[in-house]
Design a protein around this nucleic acid. Structure first.
Length: 489
RNA sequence: GGUCCUGUGGCCGAGCGGCUAGGCAGAGGUCUGCAAAACCUUCCACAGCGGUUCGAAUCCGCUCGGGACCUCCA
């Protein structure tokens, strides 16, 4: 039933059959956030995408060690020698200790992840907790001859590395073109032999507040290094999956590949997976351009981009309707459409336990299950899973209105289908919006009064009750079985 | 400028050689006191021009849009 999983490997640009290096174990590393300010919805998309990968691999029975780092040092504003560390800069700005910044935004990140029902990774290492390892790896790369010390900093020698290795393989870049393209702008990079070179270790100026001792003097690690070091430490020199946002392909992931290869001579990663960008009016959401918005703005509806509040699960469902490797455009209209569809799915699943069953079943539940697995196996194609779930919704409704029959066994299969794919794999928890006991009791009284009014053909009264409840966001539906009510925000 | 991705109906978004994607919106209908919901039916597509093929949204070429990366970004 489950079939074979195929994943699109951005290194080979092909869909490949997924074969774990050492089954049933899978090692997966995903580049986490730099915690110098709030994560935006675009950031969230990447982590939700890899949450699906994590969940599905586990569903298939793999024992996954999922490492997702927190970058808390070394991420510079730009590549120049005087480039400021993002966290140090923010610390100055907010007048806080750098580690306070780190803590503050790490907490915020975790809160958002929790709201989106993103599972915690197995290990969430930070760069500052792995300085010793980063210094060791830097030394290792120097010893292998692929890095050089210059004025208290250590740089990776890209051109030398490229003579014996394929630098640019992941991002499709050619070393000669890179050299000629960047030769002109060498401003402020005097310590480097080539502008292509990147820092493994950076000398800290005296006023720099984040600095540590090293064999090369006081400094701090380069951004790319932490991922190489921590993935190696927790997943070994070779592991199965490395993920991250598309925008990290170059230079970050390219540098990671080079570092790993230089340090231990091995290709570390078997499958590279890249999640695509979330766009806003067709353009990439980005912290640096200010074109983004925050999850909290979405949940409260306080943004010029949205007309109302959307729940975290609605947003997650919205993202499931698009493949992770395609860009997804964010708009109020699209969110509204997703919200309506999502409610329809929830309404149908709620009907499931109370469906009238028969001996014969006219619902092809095997086909529905198969389609869900086939879709997930085809590079985690959640939009196709969602489409299949909507087909299941249609079947449920047909049974409900008596146009089709279903057996007890098949109801159980459908129940499992929604549990597996909607809840476990896509991570969407049905949001119960049931009132408390008092509210339920009150509603019972009110609906009873309305029922009396209707029986007496006092429609003025029954409509008044309905209209006034509507004004309180309570929606009433008269069905054959009686009157239902829901509270809608 | 270089490298790469992309252009699907009113909107979002799958499909990637032949078979209805799906959701939302629109129209008609069934049901209903009326609504709502649900279901049924229906409308609206593959940027343009060539080529390959028995057959192309799907492959190839060109043209025209849009975007990403080449500085920091998930």
């Amino acid at each position: 039933m489950q079939g074979e999983l195929y994943v699109y490997n951005t290194l080979t640009k092909k869909k490949e059959k997924f074969q774990a290096l050492t089954p049933p174990f899978v090692g997966m590393y995903v580049c986490g956030p730099t915690v110098y300010n709030d994560v935006h919805i675009g950031n969230c998309r990447t982590f939700i995408s890899f949450d699906i990968v994590f969940r599905y691999l586990q569903h298939l029975g793999y024992k996954v060690r999922y490492v997702r780092n927190i970058t808390d040092v070394g991420h510079l504003e730009n590549d120049a020698d005087n480039g400021e560390d993002k966290i140090a800069k923010k610390a100055k700005l907010e007048n806080l200790e750098p580690m306070e910044i780190v803590q503050k935004y790490t907490n915020g990140f975790h809160d958002v992840m929790k709201a989106f029902n993103v599972l915690s990774p197995s290990i969430e290492p930070t760069a500052t907790a792995h300085l010793v390892e980063q210094i060791e790896t830097t030394q290792q790369i120097i010893d292998k001859g692929f890095a050089y010390v210059s004025n208290g900093s250590v740089y990776f020698d890209v051109e030398k590395f490229a003579k014996t290795n394929h630098y640019g393989e992941l991002s499709g870049r050619k070393i000669d073109e890179l050299i000629s393209a960047t030769r002109e702008n060498l401003d402020g990079q005097d310590d480097k032999k080539s502008s292509l070179d990147f820092a493994l270790w950076k000398q800290a100026s005296p006023e720099h507040i984040m600095q540590w001792n090293s064999p090369w003097g006081k400094g701090f690690p380069g951004w790319h290094l932490e991922c190489s070091v921590m993935s190696t430490k927790y997943l070994g020199e070779q592991f199965d999956i490395h993920g991250g946002g598309m925008d990290l392909k170059f230079p970050h992931h390219e540098c990671e590949i080079a570092q790993n290869k230089a340090a231990n001579g091995k290709e570390a990663v078997k499958y590279w997976l890249h999640a695509n960008m979330l766009t806003l009016n067709g353009e990439k959401m980005s912290k640096s351009t200010g074109k983004f918005f925050l999850p909290s703005q979405l949940f409260t509806g306080e943004s010029e981009f949205v007309s109302k509040a959307y729940s975290p699960m609605t947003v997650r469902f919205f993202m499931m309707q698009c493949h992770y490797a395609s860009t997804l455009d964010f708009s109020d209209e699209a969110l509204q459409a997703a919200e309506k569809g999502f409610k329809r799915i929830l309404a149908a699943t709620a009907l499931l336990p109370e469906l009238k069953t028969s001996e014969n079943s006219q619902v092809d539940v095997t086909e529905l299950s198969k389609r869900c697995y086939d879709s997930m196996n085809d590079d985690f194609n959640t939009p196709m899973v969602v489409a299949t779930l909507f087909d299941a919704v249609k079947e449920i409704n047909l049974v409900k209105q008596g146009s089709k029959t279903i057996s007890v066994e098949h109801v159980a299969v459908l129940q499992k289908l929604f549990n597996d794919f909607l809840i476990d794999i896509m991570g969407i928890i049905p949001e119960e919006e049931k009132g408390n006991d008092v509210a339920n009791g009150l509603m019972e009284v009110i609906l009873d009064l309305r029922k009396d009014a209707k029986q007496n053909k006092n429609y003025t009264m029954s409509d008044k009750i309905r209209d006034e409840l509507k004004a309180l966001n309570i929606v009433i539906k008269d069905t054959k079985e009686g009157t239902e009510w829901t509270y809608e925000k």
